[in-house]
């Protein structure tokens, strides 16, 4: 069995697997980065004003959702995998995973930045924290769009 045969026989499941992996890896990295960033900011706040823990937790969680979206897409995509998949099917799954993979990755980092800036608002002016939360939820929109698109793509075509 040479490489070409492997490619033809198992290409589908390899690409599908790649898609699943990417859907977890990329948003996961992004979310970790974003949550880490906000975590750093909030821990700075905790040193000075520990009583604001509750509100800062909300900001902290926001960039974490992308990782979750990626995970959900990955689970769904995994359900469609089987070893004798056609190569086209595998590639399609990979494509369907890409939106959440990339958008989830980047948007988590950007959302992390906005949320970290939101922590500054929380630090300076507690009444206005909601605005900071709204701003960082705006970034969430695009992750959500990508998530929805990935979801639809996965279910739109039946092989």
């Amino acid at each position: 069995m040479n490489f070409a045969e492997i490619f033809v026989n198992f290409g589908g499941v390899v690409f599908g697997g790649l898609g699943v992996a990417l859907a977890v890896i990329m948003p996961g990295i992004g979310s970790a980065r974003g949550v880490g960033l906000v975590g750093e900011a909030t821990s700075g706040l905790m040193i000075e004003e520990p009583e604001k823990f509750g509100k800062s937790l909300l900001l902290e969680l926001l960039p974490g959702t992308q990782g979750l979206y990626g995970f959900v897409i990955a689970l769904l995509a995994m359900g469609q995998l089987y070893s004798t998949m056609e190569i086209a099917h595998g590639l399609f799954i990979l494509m369907a995973c890409l939106p959440i993979a990339f958008v989830g990755w980047k948007s988590a980092i950007f959302q992390g930045k906005v949320a970290a800036a939101g922590v500054s608002i929380l630090a300076k002016n507690e009444q206005q924290t909601t605005k900071g939360i709204i701003f960082s939820v705006m970034v969430e929109t695009y992750a959500l769009l990508a998530f929805v698109l990935s979801l639809i793509l996965l279910n739109s075509v039946t092989f």
Partner: peptide, 13 residues
């Protein structure tokens, strides 16, 4: 500087 900035914001108050 993220952490430092937030701490500075609190100190600024």
């Amino acid at each position: 500087f993220t952490q430092g900035v937030v701490r500075t914001r609190v100190l600024e108050k």
